Amino acid sequence: MSASPKWRAAQLGLAFVGAATALTALGYQTGPAVADTASDSTIANVQVSGAITLTGLTDAFTLTGVAGTTPTTGGSPVTMTVTTNNFAGYNVTVVPAALNLIGAIPGNGDVIPANTLEVDGPAQGGAYAHLTYPTPLVVATKASASAPGGDLITNNYRITIPFVRPDTYTGTLNYVATTL
């Protein structure tokens, strides 16, 4: 006996549903595609190192006078900028590079002892202190970080000129900025 058309349509419908279920079980989708997603996260680290710079140090200064006088840098002080992110602060020191200031004229054996140079600065509270070779002298100190653009440091120098031949006597002064 042959199946009625309704019965045949019902059998085909069941067969289709059975095939779709089998395909879905095998990993095939019968509907619209679904987008897959996956997510994760990462940690951003920013490691900041400590730094200190001493910039803009006055190249040179000249104290001019005759023996027995005490000239100062006065209106033309030695200046520099110290920049640091160290929240404990910093010190700035100065030390003569040699024991004596040496004359420029060939054959001049006179010298001016470096320890006759005196410096004032924030660390001296406005008073002058003698430089001493080879011992660094603190000329500025701060117990915190500098301003973001740096701190301006100013030092004035003076000397009582000893009885030496007329000449230009020269010596190097080494500045060092150190974090605390």
Rank of each mutant, 00 (worst) to 15 (best):
T170C: 13
V48T: 11
T178D: 11
T81R: 00
L117S: 08
L137F: 08
K142I: 02
T93Q: 00
L101G: 10
M1H: 13
T132Q: 13
P106C: 10
L14T: 02
G75H: 00
D40Y: 15
T42W: 15
V66E: 10
L23N: 09
L12Y: 12
G75R: 03
G126N: 07
V46W: 13
L137I: 05
A22I: 01
G171R: 05
G65R: 03
D36M: 14
V82W: 02
G75W: 04
P166A: 12
T132H: 13
I159H: 03
A33T: 15
F16R: 04
G107L: 13
A38I: 01
G56F: 07
T141C: 04
N174G: 12
Q124T: 07
A97N: 05
N108S: 09
T172R: 14
L63K: 00
P113F: 12
A145R: 01
G56S: 09
K6M: 00
Y28E: 05
G75P: 07
V119H: 00
K142R: 10
T64Q: 03
V78Y: 04
Y133W: 02
A15C: 11
P71T: 10
I102T: 12
P71Y: 05
T64V: 11
L99P: 05
L54W: 10
G149P: 02
S39E: 03
V34E: 14
Y169E: 04
P32Q: 14
T178V: 11
K6E: 06
T160Q: 10
T62E: 13
T73H: 04
T135K: 12
N155P: 00
N174H: 15
A20H: 01
V138K: 01
W7P: 06
V34R: 12
N115K: 08
Q11N: 13
D110E: 04
A9H: 11
A38T: 03
N108Q: 06
P162A: 04
T84Q: 03
T170N: 13
P96W: 14
V95E: 00
D120L: 02
N115Q: 09
P77Y: 14
K142Y: 08
T141D: 01
A140Y: 03
P71K: 04
Y157Q: 02
L57G: 06
V164C: 04
T70H: 01
S146P: 01
G56E: 08
G171K: 10
I102C: 10
P166F: 10
T116V: 07
A51H: 12
A67D: 07
A140V: 08
F163N: 13
V95A: 05
G125E: 14
G150I: 09
T58W: 06
P77R: 01
P166T: 13
H130T: 07
E118Q: 13
I43S: 12
N45R: 12
P122W: 03
V95T: 08
T179W: 12
Q29Y: 15
L152N: 04
G74V: 12
G89H: 04
F163Q: 14
D167F: 08
A145N: 08
T81Y: 07
S39V: 07
Y157V: 08
V78R: 00
D40Q: 15
T172S: 15
A129S: 09
I52V: 06
A104L: 11
I112N: 03
Q124G: 01
A88K: 02
N86F: 06
Q11S: 15
D59G: 08
A22E: 00
Y28L: 08
T178M: 09
T73C: 05
A33I: 15
T73D: 09
L54K: 05
T24F: 15
A123V: 06
A15M: 11
S2D: 03
S41Y: 14
P162Q: 04
